[in-house]
Amino acid sequence: HNLTITQGKLFFHYNPKLCLSEIHKMEEVSGTKGRQERNDIALKTNGDQASCENELLKFSYIRTSFDKILLRWEPYWPPDFRDLLGFMLFYKEAPYQNVTEFDGQDACGSNSWTVVDIDPPLRSNDPKSQNHPGWLMRGLKPWTQYAIFVKTLVTFSDERRTYGAKSDIIYVQTDATNPSVPLDPISVSNSSSQIILKWKPPSDPNGNITHYLVFWERQAEDSELFELDYCLKGLKLPSRTWSPPFESEDSQKHNQSEYEDSAGECCSCPKTDSQILKELEESSFRKTFEDYLHNVVFVPRKTSSGTGAEDPRPSRKRRSLGDVGNVTVAVPTVAAFPNTSSTSVPTSPEEHRPFEKVVNKESLVISGLRHFTGYRIELQACNQDTPEERCSVAAYVSARTMPEAKADDIVGPVTHEIFENNVVHLMWQEPKEPNGLIVLYEVSYRRYGDEELHLCVSRKHFALERGCRLRGLSPGNYSVRIRATSLAGNGSWTEPTYFYVTDYLDVPSNIA
């Protein structure tokens, strides 16, 4: 807008934040220059609390790290170098490059900038070799853009010569660093050979998330399962459950009422301010606690030095998902009996873990797994792929695949051998790939016309006998059925096997 004052003059007093240069501009645009008398524009009460600059400061050096910015700028000295009290560095987070010096300023003089007072450097006698002032900004957020400017702080001049310097606002972004852990990993099994893994992005990506790394490792069953005799009275049979499938998407929606109208769909109840505040506090606490764990609990591995020492970490090797089922080394339970199943799973520490690289999504279907087997899954978020990966501390989750139908069934015939004193040795093959492992066998036998009897055969007993022995049988026709019990439950009964026990007292003698 054009402003013209045809008559009258300007009068400025007691404006401590208004620089004289701005008042002189007002004289020019209003056409009143030359009308004012000496005392109409006070030299001592206008701009006496402001830094009124008329020179431009330029930054000469900028260096960044993930949490620091090192700045240096060209030296500046007023005509009387004693008038320079120091520099004021202003900075704040700036997602967009549209910041002005006066953003967030209120009537009390406060604003949204963080201000650092910096002492002037030592003055050199040689004007050509003056030290460049600077400042190291610490405690910054990774991968965050900051708006920065600097200006001088000078003393009051009796001659009211307006001098000083100020830089333009520059924008500097800190470097990326390792992201925080992925949030809320959930693993479920939808079949006997697959596990579905879902997660949420890290709360602090500290860069642009480029991919996720998912490692999985087959877990050995508890050692007590191999040692305890679950045929003993009072000892509860062990059981394991597989990871249940995901709930429906509708039930997972946030901010939804727990109660549904019987007449149909209901609208979600909005969260109160107290609920939102509580969630923010919980989120802040979780982030602080995660940072504490990362800094205190997890110790970084030592990389190899120039002395030739090897990095103890196993090298990563990509495998196809079809090879995942046989990740671990199978060892027989008892070496003397080769027909026992290889369900003991000690994992070799030198073995390469299978892994998958996930790009542009937060889910993965891990296939080719062994049925009813526990897996430990390790999830890392990465925001750099080359020249070397920059990934987060791992988040861990466990899951067990679903049982395989008929995996616990005894394959092959049940054979028998009759000894003296009416002892019958029953023999059968253990299931080759049971659900988890076989903890015991149930032997059901009966003599024709009598009630059915049951015998429990422990895992250890089966390994020693290759089956079991029935003792003290009365003469007669017998039928026997056997079924295995694994961590997933009972298998199917075998087809009945028949044998006849004679009275050993009636056996004919070869003595003449």
Rank of each mutant, 00 (worst) to 15 (best):
N208D: 02
I209V: 12
I209N: 09
T210L: 11
L213A: 14
L213M: 14
W216M: 15
W216I: 10
E217Y: 15
R218V: 03
R218S: 12
D222A: 13
D222G: 08
S223M: 14
S223L: 09
S223N: 12
L225V: 09
L225T: 13
L225P: 05
F226Q: 05
E227L: 11
D229M: 10
Y230F: 07
C231K: 03
K233I: 08
K233S: 11
G234Y: 06
G234A: 07
L235Q: 07
L237R: 14
L237E: 15
P238N: 11
P238F: 11
S239A: 14
T241K: 09
T241Q: 13
W242F: 06
W242V: 14
S243Q: 09
S243I: 08
E247P: 11
E249R: 08
E249S: 10
D250G: 08
D250L: 14
S251R: 10
Q252M: 03
Q252D: 15
Y259L: 04
D261M: 14
G264A: 15
C267S: 10
S268K: 12
S268F: 03
C269R: 09
P270C: 02
P270L: 04
K271R: 12
T272N: 11
I276S: 09
S283W: 03
S283P: 08
S284I: 01
R286N: 03
R286A: 14
R286E: 14
R286C: 11
K287F: 14
Y292K: 11
Y292S: 09
L293V: 05
H294Y: 05
N295G: 14
N295M: 15
V297A: 07
V299S: 09
P300H: 11
P300G: 09
P300K: 13
T303C: 06
T303L: 04
T303R: 10
T307M: 11
G308D: 08
A309F: 06
A309H: 14
P312G: 14
R313W: 13
S315R: 09
K317R: 09
K317Q: 10
L321N: 13
G322E: 08
D323E: 11
N326R: 09
N326G: 01
V327K: 15
V327Q: 13
V327T: 08
T328L: 11
T328K: 11
V329R: 07
V329T: 03
P332W: 07
P332D: 09
T333P: 03
A335S: 08
P338Y: 11
S341P: 08
S341K: 07
S344M: 08
V345K: 06
V358A: 07
V359R: 08
V365L: 14
S367A: 15
S367E: 04
S367M: 04
L369A: 03
L369V: 09
H371Q: 09
F372Y: 12
T373L: 05
G374V: 06
G374C: 15
I377V: 07
E378L: 04
L379Y: 04
L379P: 01
N383P: 02
N383H: 12
D385M: 06
T386R: 14
P387N: 03
P387F: 12
E389G: 05
E389V: 08
C391F: 01
A394S: 07
A395R: 05
Y396P: 06
S398W: 03
A399H: 13
R400Y: 06
T401L: 03
T401E: 03
P403M: 07
E404W: 07
E404N: 09
K406P: 07
A407H: 13
D408I: 01
D408T: 01
D409Q: 07
G412L: 10
V414P: 06
E417L: 10
F419R: 15
N421W: 09
N421F: 04
E430W: 03
P431E: 00
K432W: 09
E433H: 03
P434H: 04
P434F: 06
N435E: 01
N435V: 00
L437I: 08
V439S: 07
L440G: 06
L440N: 14
L440S: 08
V443K: 00
V443D: 01
S444V: 15
R446S: 02
Y448L: 07
G449R: 15
E452L: 09
E452N: 03
H454T: 09
L455T: 10
L455P: 01
C456R: 03
C456V: 02
V457R: 06
K460T: 09
K460W: 14
F462P: 01
F462K: 06
R466P: 05
R469F: 15
R471Y: 15
G472D: 12
S474R: 04
V480G: 01
R481N: 05
I482S: 01
T485W: 09
L487H: 00
A488Q: 06
G491H: 02
W493Y: 15
T494F: 01
T494V: 01
E495H: 15
E495S: 09
P496L: 10
P496M: 02
T497K: 05
T497W: 10
T497S: 07
Y500N: 14
V501H: 03
T502W: 05
Y504T: 13
L505N: 09
D506F: 13
D506R: 14
V507M: 14
P508W: 02
